[in-house]
């Protein structure tokens, strides 16, 4: 197990390095620089500023300096907001984005699985059709459309929930619904189809032949097997939710990390671009790692370590 984790960590580090390198290449290849605005700064000032931010160095030196900043976890000050370091921005934005993301995942996973199970158990019944129609809607409607619709109806028209920002649980409801509906629908459909398949398996018949209650059969015998494909697509869903947070944060004016990420690119704020990219990628890579570990826990056939030879 330990060997596997170490190996994975190494692969994760390499992945991150590739992402950083690509980001750097893209960053320097887009025209413009954080400093060339038409402010009429004289040449000496411009030179001094460039020297201050190491922008006068050749690219390979700049690249190494960025790598150093990542290793030391100190991304330096933002160029556009010189009184703040990138770490400050991340420290402020991340808890909010994280809260939004995690609650969304929990909501999507739990409601998706429950909806899927109910639909499978009431197969071809009215509940099944309703749940699956809902799921199709959820998959088809993009989150930004849903978000504006929710704001227009529930916040503006009926004033049930506040329109924007992030200061109380009531503020969290609309953004989370907007962000969770898509993944929830995907999970519900997948859970339903795998559940239907699992319920026809011999071991379910065997469990019934043992006289177990339907409740036990579904939750002890069927669910664990039915969740395997759901865990598999969790990686993709996580990436989707993560990028979804940029849009949702923008629409609901949530002061999370997404704002800095998008703005930094528009403003060519190199340290912030690097900082947020590294942070987002590292986070996603780590979550995918957790998904793989969870897979091994759910299915004993995918044991990572084994004394007796199986790998």
């Amino acid at each position: 197990m330990l060997k596997y984790i170490l190996k994975r960590l190494l692969i994760m580090a390499v992945t991150l390095w590739i992402i950083v390198t690509l980001t750097f290449v893209l960053m320097v290849s887009i025209p413009g620089s954080p400093l060339n605005e038409e402010r009429g700064t004289n040449e000496t000032v411009q030179k001094n500023l460039e020297a201050h931010y190491n922008l006068d160095e050749p690219y390979h030196i700049q690249y190494l300096l960025y790598l150093k900043s990542i290793v030391t976890l100190d991304f330096g000050p933002s160029i556009k907001q010189p009184n703040q370091t990138v770490n400050d921005l991340l420290g402020r934005g991340f808890p909010i984005s994280f809260e939004l993301g995690i609650v969304t995942i929990l909501v999507a996973v739990f409601s998706g699985i429950i909806l899927g199970i109910v639909a499978a158990l009431k197969h071809n019944g009215i509940i099944d059709y309703m749940a699956m129609s809902l799921a199709v809607l959820g998959i088809s409607i993009p989150n930004f459309v849903l978000a504006t619709l929710l704001i227009q109806q529930l916040a503006v028209k009926y004033e049930i929930f506040p329109v924007a920002t992030w200061s109380s649980p009531a503020h969290m409801v609309l953004p989370i619904i907007a962000l969770a509906t898509g993944p929830m629908a995907i999970i519900a459909r997948l859970t339903r189809s795998t559940m239907l398949e699992v319920l026809t398996q011999d071991y379910i018949k065997m469990a019934r032949a043992k006289g177990l209650s339907p409740w036990k059969i579904v939750f002890k015998h069927a669910l664990k097997n039915a969740l395997m494909p759901v865990v598999t697509i969790m990686g993709t869903l996580l990436a989707g939710i993560l990028t979804g947070t940029f849009v949702i944060e923008k629409i609901f004016a949530i002061p999370g990390m997404g704002k800095y990420f998008v703005e930094s690119i528009n403003q060519r704020d190199y340290p912030v671009i690097m900082g947020t990219t590294v942070f987002y990628s590292a986070f996603l890579i780590f979550m995918l790692f957790l998904v793989d570990i969870a897979y091994g826990i759910l299915d004993p056939r995918i044991k990572i370590h084994k004394k007796g030879g199986e790998s």
Binding site: Y203, A209, K210, D299
Partner: peptide, 29 residues
């Protein structure tokens, strides 16, 4: 079921739940 009348199925490869230990499956009845 399982107490007075029990049943054995044709294919032992599929009659056991792959995600539960033998002990759990033996004892749950």
């Amino acid at each position: 079921r399982g107490v007075d009348i029990s049943m054995i199925f044709q294919d032992p490869m599929t009659a056991l739940n792959p995600t539960l230990t033998i002990g759990t499956q033996l004892m749950e009845g």
